[in-house]
Computed example of a mutant assay.
Amino acid sequence: MGWLVTGGAGYIGSHVSHALLEAGIPVVVIDDLSSGFEHFVPESATFVRGTLLDRNLLENTFRHYDLHGVIHIAGYKYAGESVNRPLHTYEQNVSAMVSLLQAMELAGVDRIVFSSSAATYGTPDTEVVDETTPTEPESPYGETKLIGEWLLRDAARATGLRHTSLRYFNVVGSGSELLYDASPHNLFPKVFDILYRGATPCINGEDYPTPDGTCVRDYIHVRDLALAHVAAASRLDDGLPMQPVYNLGSGKGTSVREIMTAIRTVTGIDFEPRVTPRRPGDPARIVAAGDLAARDLGWAMRHSLEDMVASAWAARRHAGEAYPSS
């Protein structure tokens, strides 16, 4: 019996799919390729092209394949852009999840790992957030992720659905030169693509209430994230107790300016970033503690910031001119 990975042709989803297969777990990927790539899907995985809004496709997928769990990663993941596209964000992140949960209930699939976000916290008034920190999202993206967690909670009360949600923020790096983050809105791919093309990257705002005035985030390696998803799925399979929410974080933050310095050092490209106005929906600081996930999921930061930069830069260079330009 296998697991369905929604959004499994994307940057994060493909890493999760590879990690599941390495653990001996069969994988079916569903993805509409709006931001993913079919060549990211592992050869030994089954690929179904389509949207989660298509209930018939979902029901046929569950009917045709021997699935007993879902890792739900698909969605519209851009906090800043969600402010400009709230209805699209709600459709992709809430309506699609309702459709998925309905199809799961009809098929008798009773376990799910949800890819949530630290954006559910908004701008917390504490240096490091844990799972008890109040959730006060500041963008439609963060709101939809929190609603997704509520959907799981309520479905569990009604049907006994077994679930957990993994909250994280900036996922970077690469587990393979063949897999890269092509988002036009995420910091690492934006900066790397600009540098690859010989231009100068920018920093969105330097007047935040942080030590150097730029946003502070918790950066984690995509490979570490993927292993946490596999551990969560395995724990659900084993019937072990699970927390409804786990933070996946380092417990310490890195500012955007510090990221720029690391990129300059690792790539050997000398540049001074331009400063542009803030983006709407960007909180000043989010750093998460991963203690609960370390206890239950074996969560650990196995990669340094330099590892994250070097692996992501290697994947961008390997893609060359085939990399999708924004």
Rank of each mutant, 00 (worst) to 15 (best):
G75I: 05
H163C: 03
S174Q: 14
T126N: 11
G108F: 07
Y90N: 02
A74N: 14
M104H: 09
A158H: 13
L161G: 15
A156C: 00
V128E: 13
R111E: 08
R111I: 06
T135F: 03
G142L: 00
R63T: 11
G160K: 15
V109I: 11
N186F: 07
T89R: 02
A155T: 02
V94D: 02
Q102Y: 13
L187M: 03
E131T: 00
Y90L: 03
V70Q: 08
L161T: 12
P189T: 11
S95P: 13
S115C: 13
P189K: 13
S115E: 14
M104G: 06
T126I: 10
L161D: 11
P140Q: 00
Y141S: 00
P137T: 00
T126P: 09
L152K: 08
L178E: 12
A74D: 10
Q102D: 10
T164P: 07
F169S: 05
G75V: 06
I73S: 03
Y78W: 15
Y78R: 14
S82Q: 04
T144V: 01
L178C: 15
S165D: 09
S165K: 04
A107S: 09
N93P: 04
T144F: 00
E149M: 08
L101A: 12
G122A: 01
M104R: 11
N60H: 09
D54M: 07
P86I: 14
S116K: 05
L57G: 12
A118V: 04
L179D: 09
V70C: 08
Y78N: 11
T123H: 14
V109S: 10
P140R: 01
K145V: 00
E177P: 07
N84D: 12
W150A: 04
H72P: 02
E177R: 13
L152I: 07
S115F: 12
P124L: 02
L152A: 07
M97F: 09
K145A: 02
R63Y: 11
T135C: 09
N60R: 11
E143F: 01
S95F: 13
L151I: 02
H163A: 03
A107Q: 06
G160P: 10
S117M: 01
V83M: 02
S174N: 10
N60T: 14
R55T: 07
G173V: 04
D125H: 15
S139R: 04
L152E: 05
F169Q: 06
R111C: 05
E131W: 00
S183H: 03
L161R: 11
R162A: 06
Y76D: 06
S116E: 05
V109C: 14
S165F: 05
V129Y: 01
S139L: 00
M97Q: 13
T159Q: 09
I112M: 08
E136R: 07
I112V: 10
G175E: 07
V191N: 01
L166S: 11
D66H: 15
P124G: 11
A96K: 01
R157C: 03
N186V: 10
L178K: 14
S165M: 06
H163R: 07
I147N: 06
A119E: 05
V171Q: 07
N93C: 02
I71W: 04
E177G: 09
R153E: 07
V172A: 15
L179R: 04
R55L: 06
S176V: 07
L166N: 08
